[in-house]
Amino acid sequence: MSEWTMVCPLEEIPRLGSRVVQTGDGDVAVFRNGADEVFALRDQCPHKGGPLSQGIVFDRRVACPLHGTTVHLDSGEAAAPDKGCTHKYRVRVDKGDVYLWNL
């Protein structure tokens, strides 16, 4: 199925925070940063699988709550010198609602 799916209004994601979207394919973390940009990643840190959704968001990054690995929100890549990558989802905001592609 190829389509945009509305997940929630933007205002229901706290600024510098996230929401967890449960899908048949595992949890997706939808982040909103300080500039109201929205990003979506698989809710699994590339280090030891920690829930990235629960981390502290700053700029375009999130720090995993388990061991502090920093992950770039726009690419899903761990910030150097750490290595690894988590899956990235397409996401957009339209008229104040957040949509995910191909959930």
């Binding site: 799916t5 929630c8 929401r19 967890v20 979207v21 899908t23 959930l103």
Partner: peptide, 22 residues
């Protein structure tokens, strides 16, 4: 809104469609 922290948005068990799910 702060209460949302504890509530995941679920699309787990059903065909997803926008609107009413949330």
């Amino acid at each position: 809104v702060a209460a949302r922290e504890f509530v995941p948005i679920s699309f787990q068990s059903q065909q997803l469609h926008s609107g009413e799910d949330h």
